[in-house]
Design a protein around this nucleic acid. Structure first.
Length: 552
RNA sequence: GCGCCCGUAGCUCAGUCGGAUAGAGCACCGGCCUUCUAAGCCGUAGGUCACAGGUUCGAAUCCUGUCGGGCGCACCA
């Protein structure tokens, strides 16, 4: 907020400099204003002089001097402006300006950090999208939390967000699921059975078979149609998945069934459209998509010689429906094993006449589970995987969500169960939550001692003069821009790091300085500061879906 | 062989548009509870940013190559 204020002023000075003939317009938009890494380099620094000097072949320090002269009169905002190093212009913001952040933070309260930069753009966030063949694994868990946090961030920044789960209950996988269930059913009845070669081996299939026996006895032992088994398994597993998502605090707005694309003729329609454009052809009894015409290295089969479509075709149809449903931006969250499918689908979207740049794919790397220092191998088919439910039993939703968001999507995530299950001080989740609880406690204590917050308007905020206090005020001021950046870049991990940083600053401040003291005026000022930090921590935690306890 | 991701402290990882002296947590070692929550704080130590070139005022960041790890490369999804 303050940064944008200063940036506007610098932009103004830049234009002024152009008009005065100091430099050309070449550097417009190329320079930046940043927080310096080291103390003694001001609150904010711009590289304008070096960028201008580079473009115009001039001496950066001369440019910097001209800029300083233009900035210096603005004493309402700036205390001091100086030239440093190779030509940085370091700006020292007036302390009263930082103090003025607090009324905004506390005044806006729960809405502090929200913005409208999304301009009500309709965004579809597709995530999880696991077919109902088994419980959600830890990898799905990461994706679920990542997608949900991204959706929250987009909502917070003024986008109209739809959370969607895409699934297919009609394919080969589901048939195998039905056959696996039937085999377990027969097995449990002591009858001869053939377990499918690539069947699902988890205990949950046995449980489903058992409940079928309880409901229907052995009446299905000669049932020729696998559908009964499939339907039962699907129903149970979907309920299980939804239960898991619910425990994680995730609610989808919509479930999109791949099968509906076939029923409505939308898949056939895609083939027809592609043929019309000369981008589909027949060969070897299959229908091919002319990928080579669309920037792909090779053509791809979209309908097999058996008449069944490959995954590419319904994916194209699905994405076309997303466009037709009027979304301005489509965010797909996929595991990195889907890398290969992305270019195909995007090429398809383009071939169908839609703008593929409106689709952003977030690929997240795998989750490695560590237990007792050993990697846990995971596979849905073989039964030795850890489910999200098991994880939640051990660590709870707050820890799971926080841990899943601690890494950027691009990085592989090592989930150390031994660490996460310990509810001890090593756990960063508690560190942040503890700061929030502490702030509440302080307020309670203050009330008990008769220290009244009073009106924000006449709070003696000018008493907040310590460097530690200014740092905290700066962090608060940075929050809205951080949320915007994290949202637009689809990078919720930045929020997690920010929260740890703010919590750390507060813990440190708390240990060094008394908030409630004999000085009633100072106590009031510091109490307002504490309330501001509380607002930021609570709002930040809310965005990543982690609770902000009032006591621990 | 080809494509994508990763390689930063002992370990796990941040580092946004290329900025100044490289950041945190954990682990290790040493301190701090009679006062607002010790699930906390303070301090010490820890680095050839995988390697080699290139681009420029300036590179962990951009480009090329090499090495190492992961994931893909079906008429599976």
């Amino acid at each position: 907020m303050i940064k944008t204020r200063l940036k506007t002023l610098i932009d103004h000075c830049f234009t002024q400099g152009v008009e005065a003939g100091f430099w050309s317009v070449a550097a417009a938009g190329a320079y930046s204003l940043d927080e310096p890494k080291h103390a003694g380099q001001g609150d904010l620094a711009t590289n304008l002089a070096m960028v201008v000097a580079g473009k115009d072949q001039k001496n950066p320090r001369t440019i910097a001097a001209q800029l300083v002269e233009m900035l210096a009169p603005h004493t309402d905002l700036l205390d001091k402006v100086e030239i440093a190093g190779p030509g940085f212009v370091n700006c020292y913001i007036n302390k009263s300006v930082w103090q003025s952040v607090l009324p905004e933070v506390c005044g806006q309260d729960a809405s502090f950090g929200l913005s409208k930069i999304g301009q009500d753009k309709k965004v579809l966030v597709e995530f999880v999208s696991a077919n109902p063949t088994g419980p959600l694994s830890v990898g799905h868990g990461r994706q679920a939390v990542l997608g949900d946090a991204i959706a929250s961030l987009l909502s917070a920044t003024g986008h109209q967000v739809t959370r969607e789960y895409y699934y297919n209950d009609a394919g080969r996988q589901m048939r195998v699921l039905g056959e696996s269930t039937r085999a377990r059913y027969l097995e449990a009845l002591g009858l001869p059975f053939i377990f499918p070669e690539d069947g699902y081996q988890g205990q949950y299939i046995r449980d489903i078979a058992q409940s079928l026996i309880e409901e229907r006895g052995d009446s299905l032992k000669d049932e020729p149609d696998v559908m009964v088994f499939k339907a039962k398994a699907e129903q149970v597993i979907f309920a299980d998945i939804n239960g898991t998502l619910h425990r994680l605090g995730i609610v989808f707005d919509n479930y999109y069934n791949e099968h509906s694309l076939y029923e409505n003729g939308l898949v056939d329609d895609v083939v027809a459209s592609l043929r019309e454009k000369g981008l589909a052809y027949d060969q070897d009894g299959a229908v091919w998509f002319k990928g080579t015409e669309c920037g792909l290295p090779q053509d791809r089969v979209i309908i097999k010689s058996t008449g069944e479509p490959t995954y590419r075709l319904p994916d194209m149809a699905y994405h076309r429906e997303k466009f037709k449903r009027g979304f301005d931006w489509m965010v797909d969250i996929f595991g990195s094993d889907h890398i290969a499918t992305v270019p195909d689908v995007l090429a398809g979207v383009k071939a169908l006449g839609y703008d593929p740049t409106k689709v952003t794919v977030v690929l997240h790397q795998f989750v490695t589970l560590l237990r007792d220092g050993q990697q846990v191998k995971m596979s849905t088919r073989k039964a030795n995987f850890v489910t999200v439910d098991e994880l939640l039993d051990e660590v709870g939703a707050d820890v799971a969500r926080f841990f899943f968001l601690m890494r950027k999507a691009d990085s592989q995530l090592e989930f150390d169960l031994d660490l996460a299950t310990k509810t001890s001080q090593e756990n960063p989740v508690y560190y942040v939550q503890y700061a929030h609880a502490r702030l509440h406690s302080i307020r309670r204590q203050a009330e008990a001692k008769g220290v009244i917050l009073g009106n924000l308007e006449d709070a003696p905020l000018a008493r907040l003069t310590l460097d530690d206090e200014t740092h905290l005020l700066k962090a608060m001021a940075a929050f809205p821009a951080l949320v915007e950046g994290a949202a637009l870049d689809l990078a919720p991990h930045r929020l997690v790091f920010f929260l740890q940083d703010v919590a750390g600053q507060f813990h440190s401040y708390y240990n060094k300085h008394r908030i409630v003291s004999e000085d009633a005026e100072l106590s009031r000022a510091r109490l307002w500061l504490a309330m501001g930090i509380r607002v930021v921590l609570r709002n930040g935690l809310a965005l990543i879906g982690v609770s902000a306890p009032e006591s621990m």
